[in-house]
Design a protein around this nucleic acid. Structure first.
Lengths: 403, 403
DNA sequence: CGGATTTGTTTCACGGCTGCACAAAGTGAG
DNA sequence: CTCACTTTGTGCAGCCGTGAAACAAATCCG
């Protein structure tokens, strides 16, 4: 009988930012949400109510515990335990991984890891998406999007994989179209988005891992072969004008170094990847094993005892430091996160790496940037989910309303 | 007698974007403003009226001429001829320049160029600001801000000049504080902002010159000594987390090259600046003259005839191309603008430079980025003005209301 | 001169937000 | 235990910016 019933549609503009705050764990309570959003309590209340009505979060009036602070305890904001999910797929050199990921980067369900390689990307991606469809059917969760991480540069806006060497795909494979077709074939009526695995790992680390709070996050990681880089600026991936930025593998880090297929000598790629460590340490790589695993085995727990290995590590650390310093001079990040073998090199000789970066970068200040290891288990997978969540984070009401 | 009189304060939110469109010449008429803003004609009309009321633009009902198009001609939008200005100061190796700059990057008044150098930045900046105060008094224009361009990296947020070598200032000079104090001493009650000259030149080129429309603009330029870089992302300067990004002078472009004071060999700085050209061409530089002028004189009009010079030019072009390719791989810009000697090198051997960049960058596509020369006369000076205009462009109503 | 077309103007409505007043829920001192 | 105090949630009035729609104005074209 009340004249104005649905007047609760307040707070549409702040919905996206609010959801992002909860998603990244920066708004555990409604009071924090209010201050972080910079709005009034009334607005924050309307926004929280709306997000709860959308089934994305829960608002719990009971406080977290004895907060210890004075005043009325604030309502807790949690991600809805039975809320919607997105489908995340990561293709890597040895196979693929599939998972359903909820808000907050939480992996809700995982398919058994598959260790299959196939020169036809449609087969691999099709299998992965089919596994995802099974997961969705088994869990009964609503799916809002899908993301795919591939170990290759992905050109935008076409969505083609330019150098999918690790997975033996043809260069220029139209992974975006393939992914979309596979989703349609599996009956998952959501849009799919693709990205480079290191880029997506950086995004995941920024949202949920060691990159939280960084404004200019640089991420560098080795896969089995070669080096990838990524930059997250103000919370958004910077992929350049055509998706090809942060191709840092061919920065020259040792003028007298190995010859690279690119024509130059001493590229970061050939000087600091797993094969480089094996070769420098005088170990013949076993082609049946992953170079990354072999290199990590060589490093062992902490500092390797063997002098030859130790010297090889120091050489790689120096080369990596030179490369990072160059990136610091160009990009001036406020934090650096290392993954893959680079993460292990950091663990093996943290002080040496930091001092090389500081010495080789122009300003002591920019060179003293913190260098941290990755902190998430499956950061590329979670990053693929972030890609899928993005439309929801940008405009929750519209993204939830479409179907 | 009308009940609602001052109801014209509509359109505050779109005010900034609208002014920016007029400022950059992208909204010559009200109809274009409407489509560019993506709002209704009513909103665009209110916005235009408001900007006119603020004295920033004029709305002329008479069309530009015989437009040739059908329908009612749209009202012209012009920058107010007697509108407010900002004070722009550029300090360079030989002295300083002072100007009053209106919207649209138009230089309204200029003080006579001063050719004085002084190891005390406060003296130089003080003289320049005093000259600016005279200009303001003589023209009677309202001043809304002040910008200063210096030939040095400027650390943010402190505003210290880290390497003001060209001007013989002490490293770490607090140019921001000095500028602010000088403005106060001269009775110009506006905030001052400082920036690196190449950064500001890039900003000016993006707003009013060869960089218009670019989303990822890379700018590289030589001064008298050394190389500077700048990146304009989506219309905003990217200066990194501490203002120190795009320090591209020490990218390694020739492993067998000259020793650099940074400790490495073959840095872009020592391989492609004016002194490098003179040295490579076998010319002894005259310390009394500017190295840039001497290098340009060597190049002459177009292609130099002398074989030794020609060879030197090709070597520098190759080195520059290697450096640009490295930046392309890291930043993936959609356009490159060259200034200083690099601009002259581009003019002397455009095809060679473009092919080197394409060959040395990883993807043919990203390597085929357009490379253009600077197109503005005093781009650092205009860029300093852009810095000062920024608060007005962000929120015209507030910026105009303060005094 | 009269459609056709495009643009400027007026009016109305509405959605998102702020500001304010008040209620609710805790802490801490006596 | 009670009462001040602090902090947070909620309801209500109102403002401000924008969109939608109808109308008026200005030019081209036949």
């Amino acid at each position: 009988m009340t004249p104005t019933r649905i007047k609760l549609d307040r707070g549409r503009g702040a919905l996206g930012p609010a959801l992002e705050l909860v998603h990244t764990g920066r708004a555990p309570t409604r009071a924090v949400l209010t201050t972080e959003l910079g709005v009034t309590r009334a607005t924050a209340g309307a926004v929280a109510t709306e997000l709860q009505a959308l089934g994305l979060i829960t608002v719990d009036p009971r406080p977290h515990a004895a907060s210890g602070a004075q005043g009325r305890p604030s309502h807790r904001l949690d991600i809805a335990a039975d809320g919607p999910v997105v489908l995340a797929v990561q293709v890597h050199a040895d196979g693929y991984r599939v998972a359903l990921v909820g808000l907050g980067g939480r992996i809700v369900a995982t398919a058994p890891a598959c260790m299959t390689v196939d020169a036809d990307p449609a087969r691999i991606i099709g299998d992965a998406v089919a596994a995802g469809a099974e997961l969705l059917a088994a869990t009964g969760r609503r799916c809002l999007g899908a993301g795919l991480a591939v170990p290759s540069a992905v050109a935008e806006p076409e969505g083609t994989a330019l150098n999918p060497l690790h997975v033996a795909w043809p260069a220029g494979a139209r992974v975006h179209d393939i992914f979309r077709d596979c989703l349609a074939a599996a009956g998952i009526g959501v849009p799919g988005r693709c990205g480079n695995d290191v880029n997506l790992a950086a995004l995941a680390e920024h949202r949920h891992g060691a990159g939280q709070g960084s404004q200019h996050l640089l991420c560098v990681a080795t896969g089995h072969r070669g080096v990838g880089g990524a930059l997250v600026l103000d919370g958004r991936l910077h992929t350049g004008s055509a998706g090809l930025a942060l191709e840092v593998g061919h920065l020259i880090v040792d003028p007298a170094g190995r010859a690279c297929h690119c024509g130059a000598r001493g590229c970061l790629d050939v000087e600091t990847d797993p094969l480089a460590l094996l070769e420098t340490a005088g170990v013949t790589p076993d082609p049946a094993l992953s170079p990354l695993d072999q290199a990590r085995a060589l490093l062992g727990e902490g500092h390797p005892a063997e002098p030859g290995t130790r010297q090889a590590v120091e050489q790689l650390v120096d080369r990596l430091g030179q490369g990072l310093a160059t990136m610091v001079n160009v990009l001036n990040p406020d934090r650096i996160i290392l993954g893959g073998l680079h993460q292990s090199l950091l663990a093996a000789a943290p002080e040496r790496l930091r001092s090389v970066v500081a010495d080789r970068s122009l300003w002591g200040r920019s060179g003293s940037v913190p260098i941290l290891p990755c902190s998430l288990g499956h950061n590329s997978l979670v990053g693929a989910a972030e890609l899928a969540w993005q439309p929801v984070l940008d405009d929750p009401a519209t993204a939830l309303a479409v179907r």
